[in-house]
Simulated scan of single mutants.
Amino acid sequence: TSSSPEMTFSNYNYDSAYEYYYGNLTDNETYFFTDSTEVCPSSYLHGADIYLPILYSIIFLTGFIGNLFVITVVAAKGKRNGRLVDIFVVNLALADLVFVFTLPLWAVSASQSGRWNFGLIGNALCKLSSYAIAVNRFSNIFFLTCMSVDRYLAVVKLMDSRFLRSSQCIRVTCAVVWLVSLVLGIPSLVYRSVEDNGNGPICLENTQSLFFLGLSLTSVILTFVLPVLIIILCYGTIITHLQKHCAAAGNSRADARRRHSLKMVLFIIVAFIVSWLPFNIFKTIIISSQLSDAELSCYSLSWQRDGLIISCCLAFLNSCVNPAIYFFFDHHFRRHAKNLYLSCLAKPLLLQSHNSSGSFTNIGTSESSWTTVFRGRLQSFDQKG
């Protein structure tokens, strides 16, 4: 299952060999005591209560605006001008959009050193926000896997995959991905809650349950390692196929379009793996040490906690990266974004022309002239894009 910094690691349970008690020995530092009377700082990340809220706020704003922009542009294309891969693009943007709405909660919590002070609804917010993070993580990797398989079918098995690459089949696939992701996120609802560690309420997971720890480790393998292997296999086969058939005769325009979509999907996948790989590595190390009852040093405990907090921030950044990839690396998306901008700009100008016209003839003439002007602008932008 997925995690976020405060809800998992603000009150990390290191097992009975490392019994600890939180105490505010200074205003900004939290310490825990091991059975060897060693005093250990729970974190070496000084100033986290300042830069984490700022970072979460930036991710929220850019992720909200960017993903809403992606959905608007793709929806404005319509079925006539849309691509099959756009169905996955919209679903990815929707998953990221739902996720970023939880970040203000974590920004507030981070500004209070991980405390979850949301009153009577605090426990419900803890569970729901954790659930949203889990569903986002699962749905993202599954959609990216589906996009990789779609690119494989489009390049390698084009003539044998007409049904699998139909819009109806892809929509059904997206519905199945959402359903599976919603089910896999359920443990976040069950095993996360608000608890008081002596310094105030904190949203954290139940690390006492061996079942939950085993489930978390299994989910890392099944929902990250296995999909990444499938993605690598798909793209390895695609690259091999293109190298063998690069000189083959065919529709050069369609081939260029497939290569362009292939490149765009590859950028998205690389961004996702780079963002989420550190998190999954730290998550696996921590769960393995818990399951094995390993006695870790003071430095190792803090290193694990700080590493996961940083890797969580990196993973969260992925929610606002995809819109930038679409805009800068997808000429098809950028062209439609420009068209949408110009059409929105044309409406107030047409309205102004309408209000200033004195007759029906003038209205028709003005509208026609504005239409001609903006068609010329669209054509010039299309040539540049």
Rank of each mutant, 00 (worst) to 15 (best):
T1K: 08
P5K: 06
E6R: 04
T8M: 07
S16L: 02
E19P: 10
Y21E: 04
N24K: 07
N24S: 01
Y31T: 12
F32Q: 02
T34V: 00
T37Y: 08
Y44T: 03
L45M: 10
L45G: 07
I50F: 12
L52H: 08
I58C: 13
T62K: 04
V73D: 13
V74Y: 14
K77E: 09
G78Y: 01
K79A: 08
R83G: 13
L94Q: 03
L94D: 04
L94W: 04
A95Q: 02
T102Y: 12
P104D: 09
P104C: 10
L105Q: 04
W106Y: 12
S109Y: 09
Q112D: 11
R115G: 02
R115L: 02
I121T: 04
G122D: 12
G122C: 08
N123P: 06
L125R: 00
L125K: 01
L125Q: 00
S129Y: 06
S130C: 09
V135R: 13
N136I: 05
N140A: 09
I141D: 04
F143L: 15
T145S: 10
T145I: 06
C146Q: 14
V149E: 11
Y152Q: 05
L153R: 11
L153M: 04
V155A: 08
L158K: 15
L158G: 05
L158A: 15
R162I: 15
R162W: 14
F163S: 15
L164R: 14
C169W: 01
C169L: 05
C169N: 07
I170N: 02
I170Y: 06
V172G: 07
A175S: 03
S181W: 00
V183S: 06
P187V: 13
L189M: 12
V190F: 03
Y191V: 07
S193K: 11
G200R: 12
L204H: 14
L204G: 14
T207A: 00
F212L: 01
G214M: 06
T218K: 08
T223V: 01
P227F: 02
I232A: 03
G236F: 07
I238P: 06
L242P: 00
L242C: 04
A247S: 13
A247E: 02
S252E: 05
D255G: 10
S261N: 05
V265P: 04
L266E: 05
L266G: 02
I287W: 03
S289P: 12
Q290K: 15
L291E: 15
E295K: 05
L296F: 11
C298F: 08
R305I: 11
I309H: 00
I309T: 02
C313V: 00
L317T: 12
C320S: 09
I325W: 11
I325T: 14
D330I: 00
K338R: 12
K338V: 14
N339S: 14
Y341G: 07
P348Q: 11
N355C: 15
S357H: 11
S359E: 06
S359N: 13
F360P: 11
N362A: 00
N362V: 01
W370S: 01
T372W: 14
F374A: 08
R375G: 13
D382I: 00
K384D: 00
